[in-house]
């Protein structure tokens, strides 16, 4: 584990920048474990139920939420998240609904769970970069994860996120050069999102060794906090990744049971079970204990 961040550490370190996400991840580091970050699409299956799903995963042990803005052309997403996003769009979800969901989730979790928004860039451009940042901050959101925005194109977002005190989570990939890692780390705030593999979101059998290598390289490029996403779906994988990353990001594994043809209560229960397994995984990562599928020992509390 790397040392605690220094005040003058660049970008993704944080404490100095007042990032709530970074603060939470550092608390968890002090507890000796990685954070569990859950992705859920806003408006799927409905706006109200996406709030319920978010609260459910927090109850099951998720530490940080990543709420996705449904978009017509999600090139970094695999079939599961594509299907949910399309269903949300077909259901009439609007970009502004994301602020309502963020506000509801933030309020009902007592502001204890950082709520990030994952969005492709065009909806933000269309809304207005500064207006989006302003409204996200007003809703209590922590910041943005931007899968198709590289810092090179991010001038307006860099300015708006400074202005409104929001996290900027940019991605790094196994193909990133040392120069690109350094550039991205400098531009990031909150944490850096390390894509475990070359590919899109989805469930995979294995998280390869390149993920650990990328995390090490990203730290070497100056990042303090690095979370790993893409392809993590089981408690065993979460445990493995939690050994070397500050956070384990899971999307498709949460969304898949939500797509099932079953009553909503059953789907929610299945989502909770996924959260519990993953939460146990991140909690066992550095303890040397065998990963279990039992409920987490410190479940989140929700004012609901």
């Amino acid at each position: 584990m790397s040392a605690a961040p220094t005040q003058d550490a660049p970008g993704a370190s944080t404490a100095a920048t007042g990032s709530v996400t970074a603060r939470r991840l550092l608390e968890l580091r002090a507890e000796g474990r990685a954070g569990l970050v859950a992705y859920l699409p806003v408006g799927f299956p409905t706006v109200e139920r996406s709030i319920e799903a978010a609260l459910a995963v927090v109850e099951s042990g998720v530490d940080v939420l990543e709420l996705g803005v449904p978009y017509t052309d999600p090139v970094m997403d695999g079939p599961v998240i594509q299907a949910a996003a399309q269903a949300a769009l077909d259901g009439g979800v609007r970009v502004a609904d994301v602020f309502r969901v963020v506000a509801a989730v933030t309020e009902r979790t007592g502001g204890r769970v950082p709520v990030l928004v994952m969005t492709y860039w065009n909806p933000v451009l269309r809304y207005g970069v500064d207006a989006f940042a302003r409204d996200l901050a007003a809703a209590g959101g922590a910041g943005l994860i931007t899968p198709d925005l590289i810092p090179d194109e991010g001038r307006a977002w860099l300015d708006a996120s400074e202005e409104h005190g929001l996290d900027r989570v940019f991605l790094v990939a196994p193909s990133s050069t040392p120069e690109r890692l350094a550039l991205t780390v400098r531009a990031s705030r909150g944490f850096v999102y390390a894509a475990s593999t070359m590919g899109v979101t989805g469930v995979r059998e294995e998280v390869g060794p390149q993920a650990a290598r990328l995390v090490a390289d990203t730290r070497a490029a100056g990042a303090d906090l690095v979370c790993v996403g893409l392809g993590v779906s089981t408690g065993r994988q979460a445990s493995e990744v939690g050994r070397y990353a500050d956070g384990v990001i899971v999307g498709s594994a949460f969304v898949r049971p939500m797509l099932a043809d079953a009553p909503w209560d059953e789907r929610l229960a299945a989502v909770r079970a996924v959260g519990a397994e993953l939460a146990a995984g991140v909690r066992s990562a550095r303890s040397g204990a065998e990963q279990t599928t039992d409920a987490p020992t410190t479940p989140g509390e929700v004012d609901a």
Binding site: D148, I150, F170, V172, A173, S175
Partner: peptide, 8 residues
């Protein structure tokens, strides 16, 4: 406006 993975 692409994923970082494609930049290289």
């Amino acid at each position: 406006y692409v994923p970082e993975a494609l930049v290289a």
